[in-house]
């Protein structure tokens, strides 16, 4: 089981999802990360995975992105469960390969990657550290928590410019350089930027 590490002690993503019917997009079971099971081995594995960057947004690790869902041993074999961000994320295989390579390089001889679809990934699982790194990198992190309203555009948030901090920004396109981002522009510093949208 995955310890909470430097993440909030509450289940990740258990925030304000009041406007979701429980059977809706993000089900009631979002407590994907159970409370810490203090075993040294899990921490060691987690420390290795903290060093594996997301190939498309290399400033955050796969742990900070919230896609590592479980670390476990089955019959002595290390099993890491990973969830894709989007169904068609082209980095899925690359990420799995990078995780295996990092683990093998650290002495885990035969790690197994399990792809897990449920519960579906949400940007609510991005860690605080991950959000800060995104901002420093020039990508505006998700504003608020994921909801049906945020997906349908009924509650379009104000997205502060990650470069100058201005709130005078506007959406240029629903999609940016990757499926997980939208394209914005700042009306003050005039710079375009990616927004990591709420999902």
């Amino acid at each position: 089981m995955l310890p909470s590490g430097n993440q909030p002690s509450a289940p990740i993503g258990a925030g304000s999802i009041d406007d979701w019917p429980s059977k809706d997009l993000i089900g009631s079971d979002r407590s994907g990360l159970p409370p810490a099971g203090e075993t040294g081995d899990v921490d060691a594995v987690l420390a290795i995975l903290q060093q594996v960057p997301d190939p498309e947004v290399p400033v955050v690790s796969v742990v900070e992105l919230g896609i590592v869902r479980d670390i476990d041993w089955q019959d002595g074999q290390l099993v890491v469960s990973v969830t894709p961000t989007y169904s068609g994320c082209p980095a899925t295989e690359a990420i799995e390969q990078h995780i295996v390579e990092a683990l093998v390089a650290s002495g885990y001889s035969n790690p197994l990657i399990q792809r897990r679809l449920s519960p579906a990934w949400t940007t609510d699982w991005l860690t605080e550290a991950g959000r800060e790194k995104l901002r420093a990198y020039g990508i505006a992190p998700p504003v608020g928590s994921a909801s049906k309203r945020s997906l349908t555009g009924q509650s379009d948030p104000v997205v502060p410019c990650p470069l100058c901090g201005s709130e005078a920004t506007e959406r240029v396109s629903e999609f940016g350089s990757t499926a997980c981002k939208a394209l914005y522009r700042c009306r003050d510093c005039l710079e375009p930027f990616d927004y990591f949208k709420c999902l």
Binding site: G27, S118, A120, K148, A179
Partner: peptide, 20 residues
Amino acid sequence: AEVAAKSLKEATYHLRRSSE
């Protein structure tokens, strides 16, 4: 159910864009 739940998030966003 799990494939649909995942796809639904994406399709909802698609509908938002195509409606606009």
